[in-house]
Computed example of a mutant assay.
Amino acid sequence: MGSSNVIEVNDLNFAQEVLETDTPVLVDFSASWCGPCKRLAPIVDEIAAETAGQVKVVKLDIDESPAATKRFGIRGVPTVVAFQNGEALGRHVGLANKKTLLGLVGR
């Protein structure tokens, strides 16, 4: 599922993969039943490939990871949240283009 550049995260490894890294992280909160999430996936994969080594791109299934979903107030999917040094810097709810998502991590 997805490209090898996108890391699957869940409630168990969210802190380690997202909050405890110095690298900017783009988190794609999605769900398997979500149509717009499926359309967003190739854009997220493209960003992961283009920013490899500069930005960490991860995907989280909200149904499998309710704790992280609740902690960051995710109410609709897809929601993409940018994190830096454990802080949520920006978010975009709904389908977005690559430029909008790269803007969340200052790229």
Rank of each mutant, 00 (worst) to 15 (best):
L12W: 08
L12R: 13
A15D: 15
E17P: 08
V18S: 08
E20S: 11
T23G: 04
V27R: 02
D28Q: 10
F29I: 01
S30K: 04
S30E: 01
A31M: 09
W33S: 06
G35M: 11
G35Y: 12
P36F: 00
R39Y: 12
L40Q: 11
L40T: 01
A41N: 01
P42S: 11
P42H: 09
E46P: 05
I47P: 04
I47V: 11
A48K: 00
A49I: 12
A49V: 14
E50Q: 15
E50T: 10
G53S: 10
K56V: 03
V57R: 05
D61Y: 09
D61A: 09
E64W: 00
A68G: 07
K70H: 13
G73Q: 06
G76Q: 10
V77D: 01
P78E: 02
V80A: 05
V81E: 02
V81Q: 01
A82T: 08
A82V: 08
F83P: 07
F83R: 02
Q84I: 02
Q84F: 06
A88W: 06
L89M: 15
G90Q: 10
R91G: 12
G94A: 03
L95T: 01
L95V: 02
L95N: 03
N97K: 10
N97G: 14
K98C: 07
K98T: 03
K99V: 13
T100V: 15
T100S: 08
L102G: 03
G103T: 10
